[in-house]
Design a protein around this nucleic acid. Sequence first.
DNA 1: ATCATGATGAGGTACGTTAATCATATTTGA
DNA 2: TCAAATATGATTAACGTACCTCATCATGAT
Lengths: 370, 370
Amino acid sequence: MKVTAKTISEQLGISIATVDRALNNRKGVSPKTSKKILEKAEELNYIPNKSASFLSRKKQVLIAFVFPEFPEYFWNEIELGIKSAVADFQDYGFYIETIRTKKFDIEEQLETVQEIINSEKYDGLVLSPIDDFPFIDIINKGIERGIPIYTLNTDSPLSKRISYVGADYEDSGKLAGDLLDKFTPNSKKIALITDQINTLEVKKQEVTDAKDSLKQSSRLRSRHSLQIKQKVHGFKEYMRKCNDKKQIYSFEIESNNLIPSIMSLKDELSDMDGIYVASGVLVEVATCLEQMNFNNMPVLLGHDMSEEIHQFFIRGIVTASICQDPVHQGYLSVRKVFNHLMLDIPIEQSRDIVKLEIVTKGNVKYYIHK
Amino acid sequence: MKVTAKTISEQLGISIATVDRALNNRKGVSPKTSKKILEKAEELNYIPNKSASFLSRKKQVLIAFVFPEFPEYFWNEIELGIKSAVADFQDYGFYIETIRTKKFDIEEQLETVQEIINSEKYDGLVLSPIDDFPFIDIINKGIERGIPIYTLNTDSPLSKRISYVGADYEDSGKLAGDLLDKFTPNSKKIALITDQINTLEVKKQEVTDAKDSLKQSSRLRSRHSLQIKQKVHGFKEYMRKCNDKKQIYSFEIESNNLIPSIMSLKDELSDMDGIYVASGVLVEVATCLEQMNFNNMPVLLGHDMSEEIHQFFIRGIVTASICQDPVHQGYLSVRKVFNHLMLDIPIEQSRDIVKLEIVTKGNVKYYIHK
DNA sequence: ATCATGATGAGGTACGTTAATCATATTTGA
DNA sequence: TCAAATATGATTAACGTACCTCATCATGAT
């Protein structure tokens, strides 16, 4: 019943040593013999025992995970997923260290990544870049120095990162359109709310050295993150294609002055039928909306989950939220790296797109832990 | 960095043999020494290496999974989840066989389970019972004979099954209420559609022998399955508590005459604002509704996912569906049994409730494979 | 003093794979 | 045809845990 390397060796009358050489394609086996062995392995459906393999190989791998501190709830959930994956894999000699950076501080994150690469302590790096462009160069340099780099939750698609695990934000925006459409069947006015991040202004050609992008700190500029741009594009795309009766009003609020800048929109928001908050300020918008206390409260839709948003669900202020199960996302990202580095499953520049899930009052309890 | 049994032995100056005896609480260790060793293990955060442990123990476990053939799409997805879990665990000597039974044939399923228990070939049994009552006795008998029995997707809560992995259907009905409420903000008339299954009429006291319930085959009767009863109860409960403006009209259709009995409801359905299909006949209801082609198509809501339902999403006939990610559910059930049987994680009569997920046209692609 | 009992140590084997060494073919090329 | 290169076999030692036997020593009961 159980097929081991010994089974193959016995059935073919070839020594285990040679079988092993063939299976791990080490030198010293003639092509004929090798072929015979591999065919037999196929025939018997031989699967090498991972436990024995790792035990024997005694390979140890340490991976660094770098992501922001905020939104706290979201990244704590991600960390839960990472932890549960580590529990599964640490027997195989696979270890992980997580390093948190400040949310909006792109320079700190760049420095942290640079330090990690320089330290040569880690066998791999998983990163959630705050912005895409400023990281292209540092990622590519790291890859060239032989350290595998992956992205998580946010991507830097033009870099040479090995793989991305996270959502398709274009799709996320489209789903928001679909939902708002369904929640406001006969209504017309929809608000789209976004805000910006502080990032480094970088043109691709002009950066040739990772240190360069650090030197450019004077050129900090506010703009939409890649993620927001994609959500907004998806949302508008959906509305254009599927629903030409609705009118979209876009509002830009100030990141460092959230509540006042939302409150100042009171008049505009008063006759909206629905509001879509594309960036991570759903709690703030909900807080303001509750204060405004309109006669006809608009449908409010946004992203992500937290204990606060939970409360807004219960009070009926927020109708629904679009989430990517962060625990699963964390687990998946670890698994991806494990497969690549420990099982030598080749990954060529890939994207693992996680599910978009719809959360309302009715199923929120499955999305809140503790 | 790495803590093994040897580390403990060296730090305490006690031989590995004794350390091992203490860690696996075998006899031959004085309480003092044992305490010292266990405390040291705790202090060093010693985690026995699963790989080495399983390799050494050479314990082999074979589990039988028994579930219906239909709905085909759903159970195929479950099987995918099971397979991926098996891929993770087979190195540890954990094997699984799946056995499919006919959907509505409760007698066949009882017989299959009896055969499995009698064969003594399996070290455990995971079962998705078609109905709850008829399985109480056979499960209890199996448990008494020492074979661990678990339920999956549908439960037999009054039996002594070790654990249940699946949804909370009461909650599922409530979520349906919540959604329908949100999709039909200003409307009044809601249809609730159900159908029945053929099951054995069993009173708890009267069955004392598993064979008895087989002998009673003449007493086949139609009634609502536990699952449907719970969904309907949850749905009505939600509507009662949260929305007294809506009127619910219940319709019972004939399981062996689906399409005609739905079509006969044409007049009643014509002025409904929303329809909730609580049992697994969403495709049939959607088919009929599309044919009826009302001026004001009602919002149609049901459960589960399939390629057919996908198509109805695209054509706008079905608005949303409430699902439990079947792949994950399958994976989870395997993991549960693995933890119990291989890691000796004690489970006392437990329920693992899986997430309820909302699927619409906007995120359906994440729920359809191939 | 003798014997049984239990605690402990020492040492070994096994699990399946990896990987090394050394010895023995067999083939290849000049 | 002989040396060099390559293929193969035989043997062995890890990896960390589980579990077995045998020897030793201390304790307390008789």
